[in-house]
Each structure stands twice: as C-alpha cells, then as structure tokens.
Design a protein around this nucleic acid. Structure first.
Lengths: 122, 122
DNA sequence: TTAGTATATTCCATTCTTTGCATACAGTCA
DNA sequence: TGACTGTATGCAAAGAATGGAATATACTAA
C-alpha cells in the first residue's frame, strides 16, 4: 500500500486490497459496535498478538482505523464508518445476512472492558 | 444449526480480492450501462487485448460477469448488479463522486456498437 | 531504578499475484 | 478450404502478500 494515488480506480483498488483479507474483515466486524483493545481481538479471533498487530497496521495505513492508548491497553476504532456500508454491500453480493453479532466479553481477555473491576469484600 | 453461520469473512475477502485491481474496476465501470465487447475495453482502457482478457477471466471466475458471442465479437455483461452498490460504497469511503460517465463510442474500436453502419449515398 | 505487561516492528521463507509475451482457439468471410 | 479477426490461454519472471519467529518499544507499577 503505497503513497497517494492519482487515478480513481487505483484508489478504489487500494481500499478493496485493505479489505481483501478474512482476518482484517473479522477485525472490522469486531469494531462495529465501538472500540476494542488488541488483547480483546487476540482473545476473540484466536490469533497471535503479533499477527493481529500486523493486520491492524495495514488497516491503520489504509486510514480505516486509528488507535488510542488507555493505561496499558491500546484501543482501536474505525474512523471511516462508511466502511460498514461497504462490508454490507459485499454481503449483499453474496446474499449473506447483514447482521453481525454484538461483541462478547472474553474471559481470556485481560483488558478492563472484559474483566470489569469486581467489588472485593473487605 | 446454532445461529447464523457467521464465519464468512473468507467469502467477503474473495469478493474484495476480485475487485482489488484498478483495471478490473475500470472494466466494471465500463459495463455499468450495459454489455461491451472486448475490443471496446481494449480501445477505452488502452491495454493490450490479452491483458484485458486475463482480467475478464478473473471477473468471470468470480461470477461477477458473463459473456455472449455475437458474430465476431464477444460481449461481456455484469450478472451481479449489486457489485455497483459495492463500488459506490467504496467511492463513498474515499469521498469520491459516485457518477461514472456513460460509455463513449471509440473510433479505434471496430465493433458494431462503435462503428455503426452508416447509410451510404447511392 | 527494575520488572512486567501490552503492543509494534523487523526479518524471512513461502506462497500467491501480476503482467508481458507467445501462441492457441473459434468463429467469419472469401 | 484457407486466411483473417477477435478472444482466450499457458508460461515465466518479477513483484506483493502471508504468516511465523524473534525482538523492540512504550508504558505502568513497585
């Protein structure tokens, strides 16, 4: 994914390339309902951290997502929500259902969203 | 069957791969207003015939287009018009204009659509 | 400071994709 | 039939993407 593009089909092809990978699509589906941290994607997708991070770098380079640090975790979110219309349009081409289930808290994910602070008896 | 099968990022990635190429996008834009023959794409896109034919083969394999012979020419057309919603959605992501200009008859294209029979004075 | 945790990057072998070239094939016309 | 035209296919070299392993970075806590 190189620098700026001049000609129009070239720009479109760049977006499609960023989406032409099942793990990157799964990541975007995870982010559909809001930001998530890397460890959550790791737990949900069952892929190694470094691998997830590589795919996130590609989506970041395509300016589809951005990140935000909060304490020890880095949360990613989609900055071009139009991308979901694109995913839905692709599902329509395949006659696939549109709905993507809301995110699930993962026991195996250590981030604060997944392991909320529990009141401890004193 | 427990819930909708939701492991189709692979299928979506396949569509995006078929579209992740500027020449294939340009071909689909050419076919937006109806069928066109290979020679017309050759003339319009300024690419060699064998190259166009290769890209057509990929779109055919992805079941996005199909062909029809008429005399000496082979005309291609889109069989999944939903693909245009997909292209338009990608343009929206890039904040690009939606409209694709209608096809232009090419002097350099020898097909009957481009060089209509002209009444000859007797 | 040191140790630890979360995430990113770099390197690399392997595998897919791209695209030019040559050629094959299938109709058409004389 | 043979020559011709439009289109498709096979091959191969170059290039890009994949995904694994190791390592680097950046922050937090003690």
């Amino acid at each position: 994914m190189r620098g700026v593009q001049h000609n129009e089909p070239e720009q479109l092809a760049t977006i499609f390339k960023a989406l032409a990978h099942p793990v990157r699509i799964a990541i975007l589906d995870l982010l559909r309902y809001g930001e998530e941290c890397v460890c959550h994607m790791e737990a949900t997708l069952g892929k190694r951290q470094a691998y997830i991070s590589q795919q996130l770098a590609i989506l970041r380079a395509a300016q589809i997502i951005t990140d935000r640090r909060d304490g020890m975790n880095i949360f990613y979110r989609v900055v071009r929500p139009e991308i979901y219309a694109l995913l839905d349009a692709a599902r329509a081409v395949n006659s696939l259902p549109m709905s993507v289930p809301p995110p699930i808290r993962r026991e195996s994910c250590p981030c604060p969203k997944c392991t909320p602070v529990v009141a401890v008896a004193d």
